[in-house]
Amino acid sequence: MSRERHIIILALLALLPITALAESPTAAALSYTCAGCHGTDGSSVGPSSPSIAGMDPEIFIDAMQDYKVDKRNATIMNRIAKAYSDEQIKGMAWYFAKQKLELLPQSTDTQLVELGTTLHDKYCEKCHEEGGRSGDTGTLAGQWMPYLDYAMEDFIAGRRDYPRKMKRKVDAAIKAEGEQAMPALIHYYGSQHNSAQKEASHE
């Protein structure tokens, strides 16, 4: 999706009424309950549940809606997502979108990071812009590596909606570098917490 179109959609979403039925808890109250696993205001301290602070609201909504109807593989989120109305999900999406993403360093393998850098530039950068920083294709830069690993396993095994273009690129990366391709990319994104952090604080 182009930047402009994305921004227009976000602006439109913002115009929709967030005030749900009178009996609904506030978006903040709903979002606070996520902290036990996703960290205070959505910045997870690891080792595997993903940070959701600063997340694109559309991505958040899509993820929750997919969990709700068991369209996306989950351990627990499918059970949790079913509790929320569309309005509540939207409210939480905006709450987390406004939170500053705080990332922690992870230990990565230099050689894998190096290979991952090349692979990212060649196959991923076009959609996961600026090293996979938070945007309309999710947060890859600085994201917890075990989570990225699970996500890729699920895509590849068909347990999650796999965009055709992404599949082509991933297949090509695997064809080029074999078994090393995925670990390399994951180590690359895992190593990106600094750049992602700097940008996040500029927002």
């Binding site: 902290a35 036990g36 696993c37 996703h38 960290g39 205070t40 997870s44 301290v45 690891g46 080792p47 595997s48 549940s49 351990t75 627990i76 917890w144 075990p146």
Partner: peptide, 15 residues
């Protein structure tokens, strides 16, 4: 679920 359990532990303590 083991790894998410450990994540829960770290995050709830931090929270």
């Amino acid at each position: 679920e083991v790894s998410y359990a450990h994540s829960w532990f770290k995050n709830v303590i931090d929270d």
